[in-house]
């Protein structure tokens, strides 16, 4: 969910409801298995093929979006230690 435009992306809510909610409201074992499998299939397809917003285009990237060894902005590094 980190890095997305919305504070809590819609697919985070879906994941939360699917993975937590079913444990409490779906008593049938096989049905929970199917729901788990469906979440796996959908989330896999989404993270691989869903649309993404490239917020890092200002950084120097090597091919394929690989991580650069030399971050472009040194001034913001202090902020990275506030977590």
């Amino acid at each position: 969910m980190i890095g997305q435009r919305r504070l809590v992306p819609w697919w985070s809510w879906i994941g939360l409801i699917t993975l937590y909610g079913t444990v409490f409201v779906v008593p049938h074992d096989a049905t929970r298995g199917l729901i788990g499998l469906a979440f796996v299939a959908v989330s896999t397809a989404y993270v691989l093929f869903g649309p993404v917003r490239d917020r890092r285009r200002r950084r120097s990237l090597s091919r394929g979006g690989r991580v650069s060894a030399s971050p472009a902005n040194v001034a913001g590094r202090e902020s990275c230690e506030k977590y």
Partner: peptide, 8 residues
């Protein structure tokens, strides 16, 4: 995450 998005 903060480091990954550094400079954005």
């Amino acid at each position: 995450a903060a480091w990954h998005f550094l400079g954005t």
